[in-house]
Structures are given as C-alpha cells and as structure tokens.
Amino acid sequence: MKQLPLDLQLPEPFGFDDFLIGPNLEAFLALKALADGEGQESVIYLWGEAGVGKRHLLQATMARAQEHGLIARYYDAATTDLGETAHGAQLLAVHHVDQLDAETQIVLFGLINAQRERGAAIIMAGPQPPMQLHLREDLRTRLGSGLVFEIQPPADEDKAALLRHRARARGCEVDETVCRWLVTHQSRDLASLTRLLDALDREALAAGRPLTLPFVREALANNALSDKTPGPQSAT
C-alpha cells in the first residue's frame, strides 16, 4: 500500500546561525553588530544577484534585534508599501528597493534622513549597486552614503553541507552525495534547493523508498514533482 506523506512545511530559517557566511564576513559582522545594538553605522546597503541571501540577512538582523528588545521592522518593497508604521523603529530593513515607485522613493528618502537624525539605523537591499539602480538620484546617493556590501554566493561544497544541515533539521536524513548532486545539477539558490529537497523527501516517503541519488534522478526525470513542489519564493 502506498504511504501518504505528511505535508508538513517548516518555516525557512532566517537566523544568523543559519546563514552560510562564505565570502560575506564583513557584511555579516556589521549587521550582527547593529542587531546587538553595538553598530555605529546608520545606513547599510546590500546588493547582489537573486538567491545569495540578502533577504535572509535582513530578516536575521531584524529577528536578532527584536530578541534584544529593539524595535525592528522589515519591509519588502515588492509586496508592502512603506507607511507611517515605518517611523519610530530603532532598526529598519527595506528589501527590493529597486521596486519602489515614485511616491515610495520619496518616503524612503525621508526615512533614511529620519533614521540618521534619530541615531537609529536602516538596512536596505537591491540587485545592483546604488548608482546602477533606476531610482531618483538623491535616493541613490543616500543608499550609497553608508556601508555598501556586495553579497556573494558561497562555494558549492558549502551549499551542499548547509543543504544537508537544513534537511536534517527538518527530520530528513539525506546522503551527502544527494545534496552535492542537487547543488551542481539543479538551482544554486539555497531556498529553492531546500524546497526541492522537502518535496523529494515527501515523494520518497509516499513511494516507500529511501531518499537516494537514484531515486532523486528518477523522480526528477519522470517529472514526479511537477505538481508537488511549492511555487518560487523570493530568497534574495
């Protein structure tokens, strides 16, 4: 009899302990200092291609700051408008600044100035360096007025190790060869890889088979996951 898998989706971890630092130590330490209330910089801008972990870093910083009792708020400009609730926070994070329309660009410009005047901080992120963004010139200048870090992807072997760690945290025992194969043959976006591995684990459970590399190849070749894998989510 075919065993039905339990469709339990654990939330994606967004803590500092879950971030694979790789070549991003300087940015990691600067954000951690802000979250701990020890940072001196009021403006930090992160940029890099999709999937390198910008959202992870922003949300990890906000979560750690809140653990320390700071008022910290996260906004994704692609889905949420900046409003009055953004004022008054000790630490702000604004992701996808490239998605701001003309009105919200003015709002963000004012927020950056307000955070500086209050001795508070704001962290922002986008896909390109400040001066390459299609935004108001004065806003681009403000984005680049503090610390600017390019967030770079980790090496494939480090991704495979973290992928296995995340799988085991979800109760999924997977061989290291499976993780290495997924990293080199599928998306190199860790969030997408984690969701794929979750789907493969459920498929293996339903089939009553171990999650081995032959099973993974078979499942992907047969498009067994085409209607079971969660849709794409931003992990930038």
Results as ranks from 00 to 15, higher is better:
residue 157 E to W: 10
residue 66 Q to F: 09
residue 200 L to A: 10
residue 121 A to I: 06
residue 78 A to W: 09
residue 196 L to C: 00
residue 33 A to P: 06
residue 233 Q to Y: 04
residue 192 S to V: 06
residue 59 Q to A: 05
residue 121 A to L: 03
residue 160 A to N: 11
residue 174 V to D: 03
residue 208 G to H: 10
residue 215 F to P: 03
residue 223 N to D: 14
residue 232 P to K: 10
residue 141 T to S: 15
residue 186 Q to F: 00
residue 63 A to T: 15
residue 100 L to N: 00
residue 109 F to Q: 11
residue 226 S to Q: 13
residue 230 P to S: 08
residue 47 W to I: 09
residue 55 R to L: 12
residue 233 Q to W: 02
residue 214 P to W: 06
residue 18 D to T: 15
residue 193 L to R: 12
residue 64 R to P: 04
residue 156 D to C: 08
residue 158 D to P: 02
residue 129 P to M: 01
residue 105 Q to F: 05
residue 9 Q to H: 13
residue 162 L to G: 07
residue 172 C to H: 13
residue 198 D to A: 14
residue 202 R to F: 01
residue 62 M to N: 05
residue 52 V to Q: 01
residue 83 G to P: 01
residue 25 L to E: 15
residue 35 A to E: 10
residue 230 P to H: 07
residue 189 D to F: 01
residue 60 A to Q: 07
residue 27 A to C: 15
residue 125 A to N: 02
residue 12 E to P: 00
residue 197 L to F: 11
residue 31 L to G: 02
residue 70 L to V: 11
residue 100 L to M: 08
residue 170 R to H: 05
residue 223 N to R: 12
residue 36 D to V: 00
residue 21 I to S: 05
residue 55 R to V: 05
residue 86 A to F: 05
residue 196 L to F: 05
residue 193 L to E: 09
residue 175 D to Q: 13
residue 229 T to M: 11
residue 142 R to V: 04
residue 78 A to E: 13
residue 117 E to L: 10
residue 173 E to P: 01
residue 68 H to F: 12
residue 210 P to R: 12
residue 139 L to D: 10
residue 193 L to T: 08
residue 150 E to H: 11
residue 212 T to W: 08
residue 167 A to S: 00
residue 160 A to M: 14
residue 4 L to F: 09
residue 52 V to S: 01
residue 175 D to C: 04
residue 135 L to E: 06
residue 167 A to I: 02
residue 127 P to C: 12
residue 94 V to L: 09
residue 190 L to E: 06
residue 138 D to M: 03
residue 151 I to Q: 03
residue 123 I to L: 14
residue 78 A to L: 11
residue 232 P to Y: 08
residue 131 M to E: 14
residue 14 F to W: 08
residue 114 A to I: 05
residue 45 Y to T: 15
residue 122 I to E: 02
residue 144 G to W: 11
residue 1 M to K: 12
residue 180 R to H: 14
residue 78 A to F: 08
residue 104 T to I: 03
residue 107 V to H: 10
residue 125 A to F: 07
residue 72 A to C: 05
residue 204 A to Y: 07
residue 232 P to I: 06
residue 169 A to D: 14
residue 183 V to S: 09
residue 121 A to H: 03
residue 206 A to Y: 11
residue 113 N to G: 11
residue 114 A to M: 07
residue 163 L to T: 08
residue 233 Q to A: 11
residue 198 D to S: 13
residue 30 A to G: 02
residue 24 N to L: 05
residue 110 G to P: 06
residue 41 E to V: 14
residue 46 L to C: 13
residue 13 P to Q: 13
